[in-house]
Nucleic acid binder design. Sequence first.
DNA 1: GCCCAGGAGTGCA
DNA 2: TGCACTCATGGG
Length: 274
Amino acid sequence: MEKIEYGAEFFNPLHTLDCGQIFRFTPFKDGFMVISGEKACYLHSDGKKTVVECDDGDYFYNFFDLERDYSAIVEKAKSYGVPLLSRSAEKCAGLRLLNQRKEEMIFSFIISQNNNIPRIKGIISRICAGLGEKREFMGMEYFAFPSAAALANAGAEFFKNAGCGYRDIFLDETAKRIAAEGIEKLEKLDTYALKKELMTYKGIGAKVADCISLFGFSRRDSFPVDVWIEKIYKEDFGGKLTDRNKICDYFCGLFKENSGYMQQYLFYGKRQNL
DNA sequence: GCCCAGGAGTGCA
DNA sequence: TGCACTCATGGG
């Protein structure tokens, strides 16, 4: 078992897990069990130090983005003079952007469309239990995220039964395509081209593509625009645009390479009523 | 019964 | 290109 310790000021488990970027975590002992792909870790904090316990320290060091200095990002957030953003960055300074698995993000965010977070978590959990390899960590059983091949062989009916609703065919088609083509060619694309290419998959539109780009491909110049961001745009930025694509362009132009971080502060802060 | 949820595909002008 | 309509499902 490996153990990583990090100052809690810029690594808060709850804020990092609860901000909508990840769907596979559960309360465990004094913290959380966090699952990514086929790997698991135990994440907990005493308010001074945050600790990651796992079998693959290198993986989770990168997963939790621990190489990056978040004090600079928090300061950047406060520099825009937007009250919501300043408050959120101040109170959620321990929110870190995760570097997650690409395929897992693709399927997870297809499920997320027109859906709510508790239900998304349930659906993903059932898909993993049905198709993922069974594993164990610290005495707890969990399931790996299924391979594209397993997802492709499951059939649309499986996704329907998992509670996906009308998204069943999107998942089935995307799984078959990824099982056949792989996703290697996506990795070479710049952020704009990546978004366009992701949108050629069934069930992936602009917002879902931006989430996959941000959380799965670590493209921090992405800024997903959903119903909450629309609300923030109107209420906290005094914006007049209604087209989501134009709202996205507005924020990307404002925040540039820090768009993704700012988006999470705004999204989480608004939802937490900060 | 209604409305909403980290929206996207389709058809038609 | 723009825009209305529709798409399962569960919770409030």
